[in-house]
Computed example of a mutant assay.
Amino acid sequence: MPQQEYPWKSLSASRNTNISDAIKVDGSKHDFYWARSHEGLPQLICKLPEAVPLDVTLPTFNGIEARLVEAGGECLLVMQLTDMTFEQLFYHLCLNLIESTRSADSAAAIVAVIAGRLKRWQKLLGKKSVPGMLTRQEQQGLMGELFFLRDKLFDWTGYRQAVECWVAPDEHPQDFALPGPTSVEVKCRQTTSPDMVKISSAWQLHQEDGDIVLAVLALGKGKEESAGHFTLASLVEDIRQTLASTPDASELFEDALFGWGYIDLPEYNVTWWQPASWRAYGVDGSFPKLTVLDLKQGIVDVSYRLSLPDCSSWEMDILDLKSAF
C-alpha cells in the first residue's frame, strides 16, 4: 500500500489520547478511529461501549503496543505503532482487528477478541524472519491447500464443514482432517521442477488411527488475468467471495488464513499460476516414508524428498476422498 494512502497520514499529532481529532473507520461495527499519538505515531483507537478494568495486560510485539486507557470519561483501547519499519504490517493488523470484532457484542467481548488476536499475531511474527511476509515456498504450500479446499472440499460438503476440515493453521501434522477419520497432506510442486515433494517432518505421514492420503497439486506458470490463472491474493479473494453468503464459514476461513500466517499484501498479487493436475496416494504401511516410529533414539526429527514416480503403486483417484463425507 503506497505510503500516502495510510489513513493516519492526513492527521496531526494529538496532545492527548482522545478521538476528538481522529477519523472514524468507515464500515466498522464498533467505534474504531484512526489517530496519531502526541509523538505523531500511528494509532487505532476503539471507543468501548462501556467501561472495563484497565489492568488487562495486552500483548506488545515488534514495535506495536496496545493498552486500555480512560480519557475524557471514555474507555479506550489504543493500538499504537512504535517502529515505523512495520507501518504496512500495522495497517493490516488494524484491519484484521476491526473485522474480527464484528461478532463481539460488549466491551469485554471486544477486548477479549482483540487480546486473542494480538496473541496470535505475537506468535506468528515471532517465528518469521520477515514480519507478515510468507516465503516463496510457504506461499506455494498455502496455494496447494487453498486449491484443495476450494476445488475439492467445497464440492464435497458444506462450506463450514469444509473450512473446519482445514487444520494446518492449527499446527496439525497434516493439512486436512476429514471424517472417517482420514487425514490429507497436501503438497504443491511446479511442473518444471523434479517430480518429487518434500516431506518436512516425521509426523506428516504418521497417524495412529485412520487413513492418510498424500495429495499433490502441480502448478504451471500463469498469465495475468487469463481464465483459470491466479495469484495467491486472487485465489484468497475468490474463496472469500464464495464464502461471502456464509458468515460463519467466512469467519472461520479468515481465522484459518490468519493462523497460517497470511495477511493481504500487494506482494502476493504479482506471480501468476495455473493449476495443472492433481495426484493422490494412499499412505499405508508399505508406503515409502519415514515416521516417528522409524526414528532411533537420539534422532529428534527428519525431513526428506519423496520421488513420486516411485510411489505409483500407491496412486489412487483423489475423488475417492469424497466418500469420507
Results as ranks from 00 to 15, higher is better:
residue 153 L to Q: 05
residue 244 A to C: 05
residue 2 P to F: 12
residue 85 T to V: 10
residue 97 L to H: 00
residue 148 F to L: 10
residue 204 Q to G: 04
residue 14 S to E: 10
residue 76 L to R: 06
residue 218 A to Q: 07
residue 111 V to N: 02
residue 319 L to K: 04
residue 226 S to N: 10
residue 160 R to L: 14
residue 190 Q to I: 06
residue 229 H to P: 01
residue 265 L to T: 03
residue 145 E to S: 06
residue 169 P to Y: 14
residue 298 G to H: 09
residue 296 K to C: 03
residue 280 A to W: 00
residue 316 M to A: 00
residue 212 I to D: 15
residue 38 H to P: 13
residue 158 G to K: 04
residue 317 D to F: 01
residue 185 E to A: 08
residue 208 E to Q: 15
residue 324 A to V: 11
residue 297 Q to K: 08
residue 62 N to I: 07
residue 256 A to E: 06
residue 174 Q to H: 12
residue 34 W to H: 08
residue 160 R to P: 02
residue 129 S to H: 05
residue 303 S to M: 05
residue 177 A to H: 09
residue 169 P to A: 14
residue 156 W to R: 01
residue 243 L to A: 02
residue 26 D to F: 15
residue 112 A to L: 04
residue 219 L to W: 06
residue 178 L to F: 09
residue 240 R to C: 05
residue 145 E to F: 07
residue 200 S to W: 09
residue 259 G to C: 13
residue 36 R to L: 13
residue 277 S to F: 08
residue 162 A to S: 04
residue 31 D to E: 12
residue 260 W to I: 10
residue 143 M to V: 04
residue 137 Q to P: 04
residue 98 I to C: 08
residue 300 V to F: 07
residue 120 R to S: 12
residue 290 L to E: 02
residue 163 V to C: 06
residue 20 S to M: 06
residue 240 R to N: 11
residue 77 L to C: 05
residue 13 A to T: 14
residue 283 V to W: 05
residue 96 N to M: 00
residue 35 A to S: 15
residue 173 P to A: 14
residue 12 S to R: 14
residue 311 C to K: 05
residue 231 T to E: 12
residue 159 Y to T: 03
residue 263 I to R: 07
residue 165 C to K: 04
residue 92 H to S: 05
residue 228 G to W: 11
residue 86 F to Q: 10
residue 274 Q to K: 15
residue 194 P to N: 11
residue 134 L to V: 06
residue 50 E to M: 02
residue 301 D to M: 03
residue 146 L to M: 05
residue 197 V to G: 00
residue 323 S to K: 07
residue 80 Q to Y: 04
residue 230 F to T: 01
residue 206 H to P: 07
residue 222 G to L: 08
residue 4 Q to H: 13
residue 7 P to R: 14
residue 15 R to T: 12
residue 225 E to P: 00
residue 227 A to K: 11
residue 277 S to G: 00
residue 195 D to P: 04
residue 107 A to H: 11
residue 221 K to F: 06
residue 210 G to H: 13
residue 319 L to W: 01
residue 304 Y to Q: 05
residue 4 Q to W: 12
residue 284 D to N: 11
residue 158 G to I: 01
residue 187 K to F: 04
